[in-house]
Simulated assay, not measured.
Amino acid sequence: MIELKTPAEIQRMHTTGRFVAEVLSELGRLADVGVNLLDLEHHARDLIGARGAKSCYWDYAPSFGRGPFRNVVCLSVNDAVLHGLPHDYTLRDGDVLTADLAVSIDGWAADSARTLVVGTAAEEDLRVIRATEEALEAAIEAARPGNRLGDISAAVWTVARDHGYPVNTEYGGHGIGRTMHESPHVPNKGRPGRGLTLRPGLTLALEPWFARTTDRIVHDADGWTIRSADGSRTAHSEHTVAVTEDGPLVLTRREDENPASRADPTGRLSASDA
């Protein structure tokens, strides 16, 4: 069942979304060569606890994982892209890091993810990161009343195709609100003009993710971490978005993010943003 949110409920989700954005910005500032993933995990725990928020990941036990998940942030490195289980790994120069965070505050959830490069960035890594960011902005632009769910999926797919990246359809976006995962499922590939008609009050977590050279995935022995099947590097960008009468409202936009000029995926602002 799809629950449409009232403007007041969307504002409560926006409160949560702003906090999620703040934590992801902080993790981006801390991520550096020599930093351990567990240090990032514990810092996120401290921030969530201080805010009185609740992690949507802690004790999460879906059918596809080897649960329960006992961390508050997903941290995926290089060829890992989704559900990365924080572990004892020290970041190295050139690593690609994805941080994915979902929390709830006063019963309302928000979910967002970002990918950045630690230290020296290879152009091919920056390119796939930028592609997911562009796909996310295209998906957000399509999240307007009267459009169809397929318009969002097609927007992601079009950007991926234009950049030459294959698209996996096993995992995609989803509804969000009182819980982290609600209906509907939002594939990252679809046909325009098909599917659910978008109405004001619909809240979605839109999350394009690409691997450079494959649409196939494999799972780590930990039962959670998802990697590209051929070891190619990956990227993942996600925002929680509300469909409103005035168009899409991004609930998790970060202050260090400029959708017009794009933030540098190393985590630093581009010159035009300074």
Rank of each mutant, 00 (worst) to 15 (best):
M1Q: 07
I10R: 12
I10L: 11
F19Y: 11
V20H: 07
V23T: 03
L27N: 01
R29S: 02
D32H: 02
V35K: 03
D39W: 05
L40M: 05
A44H: 08
A44K: 13
K54L: 07
K54R: 15
Y57G: 04
W58S: 01
D59A: 12
S63Y: 09
G65L: 12
R66K: 09
V73E: 00
L75E: 01
L75S: 04
V77S: 02
V81Y: 03
L82A: 03
G84F: 05
R92P: 04
D93Y: 09
G94M: 12
G94T: 08
G94H: 10
L101S: 04
L101Q: 05
D106R: 08
W108K: 04
W108Q: 06
D111M: 01
E123T: 06
D125E: 01
D125P: 02
R127D: 08
R127K: 13
I140C: 10
A142T: 11
A143I: 12
G146H: 11
G150L: 02
A154Y: 03
V156N: 02
V159L: 04
V159K: 05
V159G: 05
R161Q: 09
D162F: 13
H163K: 10
G164W: 04
N168Q: 09
E170H: 02
Y171C: 02
G172W: 03
G173K: 00
G173R: 00
P187T: 14
P187A: 15
N188F: 11
R191A: 06
R191G: 02
L196F: 12
T203L: 08
T203D: 09
L204E: 13
L206I: 15
T213Q: 11
R216P: 14
V218N: 11
G223K: 10
G223H: 12
R227W: 05
S228N: 03
G231A: 01
G231F: 05
S232G: 00
R233N: 03
A242K: 03
V243M: 10
T244S: 10
E245D: 12
E245F: 14
G247I: 04
V250A: 02
R253S: 05
D256V: 10
A260Y: 15
R262G: 14
A263L: 11
P265K: 11
T266A: 14
R268W: 04
R268M: 07
L269H: 02
D273Q: 15
